[in-house]
């Protein structure tokens, strides 16, 4: 009945140095970011806030699609996180 389980041993210090993805986004608050969507669309704007779904509130946003960047920037926008592919802090 008594089984002895060996201790896992060394090399157990991985978790301490990992950076969470959401930490990176959190550090970008107040800065300009570039958001790539899964479709052929990008957004450039100042990150105001975000939630766990990576829905984002952006300010002074330029929408970029196949026809190039939009002429008039959007003052404030909430971006649904469902189709976000990549976030690039500038």
């Amino acid at each position: 009945m008594s089984e002895v389980i060996e201790a896992p041993g060394a090399s157990n210090d991985v978790a301490e140095t990992t950076i969470l993805p959401l930490e990176i986004i959190d550090k970008s608050i107040g800065q300009y970011i570039h958001v790539l969507m899964t479709g052929n669309k990008e957004f450039k704007g100042k990150l105001v806030g975000f939630d766990d779904f990576v829905n984002m509130v952006l300010e002074d946003v330029t929408e970029i699609d196949n026809d190039g960047p939009s002429s008039t920037p959007i003052k404030q926008l909430l971006l649904n996180g469902a189709h976000v592919a990549m976030i690039i802090p500038s």
Binding site: G49, V57, Q76
Partner: peptide, 23 residues
């Protein structure tokens, strides 16, 4: 002073908005 999405939404209730769909 960061506004998360749910904050933002309660702030803009009653104002003129544009909703853009995926299509």
């Amino acid at each position: 002073m960061s506004t998360d999405p749910s904050h933002f939404l309660s702030n803009i209730i009653g104002s003129s908005v544009t909703v853009k769909l995926h299509n």
